[in-house]
Amino acid sequence: MVDIPILMIGKNVVVPIQTELNDIGAKKMQEDVLYKIEKTTASGLVIDVSAVSIIDSFLGRILVDTSKMAKLMGTESVIVGMKKEVVLTLIQLGLRMENLNTALNLEDGLNLLRKLQETLHGKISG
């Protein structure tokens, strides 16, 4: 099984999913990401799905759950690059992805993370 690369850009963990993940691979990715967040005390997480052509209910749930889990660890996350076909299909499938931060691409995702982190720090210091 191909390991999904997990990169660091500044203090953010960035996960570009480049292959079609099977269910076991998707679960492993989730564990690897949480491990990386813990080890690096990252402040943000970006999962890039721009190369993913199918998001079914399983992978969709993994993405939502990973984001929730990261949040519980104190890390904001953003899913970036969902293709229009994938989005249309997810909505038709009935998958709810509420409370999920999303952005068009990696750059926008990193910008959004910065804003989220600033707001968070503003709240703490204010």
């Binding site: 269910d23 079914d56 994938v86 249309l88």
Partner: peptide
């Protein structure tokens, strides 16, 4: 179309799982 492909292949993924 790409949308048809994505729609049906997603269902194939669900049903084979």
């Amino acid at each position: 179309s790409l949308l048809d492909q994505t729609r049906v292949v997603t269902a194939v993924s669900e049903l084979s799982r």
